[in-house]
Design a protein around this nucleic acid. Structure first.
Lengths: 221, 221
DNA sequence: TGTAATTTTTAAGCGAACTTAAAAATTTTT
DNA sequence: AAAAATTTTTAAGTTCGCTTAAAAATTACA
């Protein structure tokens, strides 16, 4: 199989990402929005990806990944998250900058490079955002995580994951000094606006908005 | 200035590389051979690069880099050689594989990434092949510097650089009392194991192993 | 120096990945 | 269920980076 262009790889990546919340089916317009292209150009590409057997495309309905398309998409995810880990851990990049650079690096083609990088980093299971890194065979380890908005009162959690890569959100986390693996306990939930009172590491107490809580994923301990 | 495509960057890279042996001028056919493209497509691109003021292109004569073209080409060289150093030193790639991968990595766009990588590697002056790595400002350690392993018999050299910061190697240099700027003359090369007989400052005579010689960079005087 | 050989450019055309505008299908509203 | 609104596709056109074939300029040589 001939190697895909970075553009084709991005399509597969976003079909995987957008499909995760649904049943796997992604609408043309959602892809167009994500990729910042016109809907017409998305339709165009989807037909070509379908010809290559990477996606199943049904007119006016949507698109989903085939087995081989999924395999490639997961590999890109693996590369992206390994590179993010490298940038953060080894090169000491701050959170808000690693995503954009990893979006370039994820398209470098070399299986040996991925595997050597994996080894160099000590075979990490999660990237700096707490997202699971698929292993060499595409297996993803999923811990029992829930959104902080759905978490229960008075239970102990650790911050596992953030679901918003925007620079603004990451800067916010920096400001309130909330980091991955920090211990979190909910001490109150305000019904009215769904804000949440938490303690971080049993010390600092602060208020988290509904919007922020939805993007913070925690694991019960 | 808008960022260049990887293809445009490759043109600049090869114009620099091929021009080094000449007076800086490169022929259309030589580029076509290097890039494995038709001569027609090279002509096409050279016109576009000239429009962007990156090269000076004279019909039927050849092409050379402008000031801004040179600056970009040197930057790509810097990136290529830093990545090669990273692949060899940190990821333990063998020599024969690093070039192909670095040819992809050199096109990743991020100034901060280059500089952080440079720092991570300890600001190396030479890549694994002994080629000089341009610094942040584009300055290159003099090109008449060669590895002692590649130096000629009976010529006079001075020690310019060492490309191994390991305590063991530095201790070894101390022991044999070899210092920067010392005069070195090769008086014999043993074919069998590639050990080298040298004199230091026309006095002390000693034997240098192949491995040590590869890490000693000398300049002819 | 005139002709032959070589190099380089021009011309025409192609595929990938995009665009806008119009047409068609689907979904929503009344 | 018909009309209106929205989504998606089709059609036509663009740019980039390539091709081959031909024409033109340069270089080699007899």
């Amino acid at each position: 199989m001939t190697t895909l262009s970075a553009i084709e790889e991005n399509y597969l990546k976003y079909i995987l990402q957008l499909g995760e919340m649904q049943n796997g089916n992604v609408k043309t317009n959602d892809l167009a929005y994500k990729l910042e292209h016109s809907a017409a150009s998305v339709t165009d590409m989807l037909k070509r990806l379908a010809d290559k057997n990477l996606v199943v495309y049904k007119k006016y309905y949507g698109v989903s990944l085939t087995k081989s398309g999924l395999k490639i998409a997961v590999k890109i995810l693996r590369k992206h998250r390994l590179w993010e880990t490298f940038l953060a851990k080894k090169l000491k990049f701050t959170w808000d900058k690693i995503h954009v650079i990893a979006e370039q690096l994820e398209h470098v083609q070399s299986d040996e490079l991925i595997d050597k990088m994996d080894e160099f980093l000590g075979f990490p299971k999660f990237d700096p955002h707490g997202d699971p890194i698929p292993d060499k065979h595409g297996n993803i380890s999923l811990p029992n995580v829930v959104s902080l908005a759905d978490a229960k009162m008075k239970k102990q959690y650790t911050l596992q994951n953030v679901n918003d890569d925007s620079a603004a959100f990451l800067k916010y986390l920096n400001k309130i000094q909330l980091q991955l693996n920090d211990k979190i306990k909910i001490i109150d939930k305000e019904e009215f606006d769904e804000t949440i009172q938490i303690t971080i590491n049993d010390k600092k107490q602060l208020t988290i908005s509904k919007d922020a809580a939805k993007n913070l994923f925690v694991k019960s301990i």
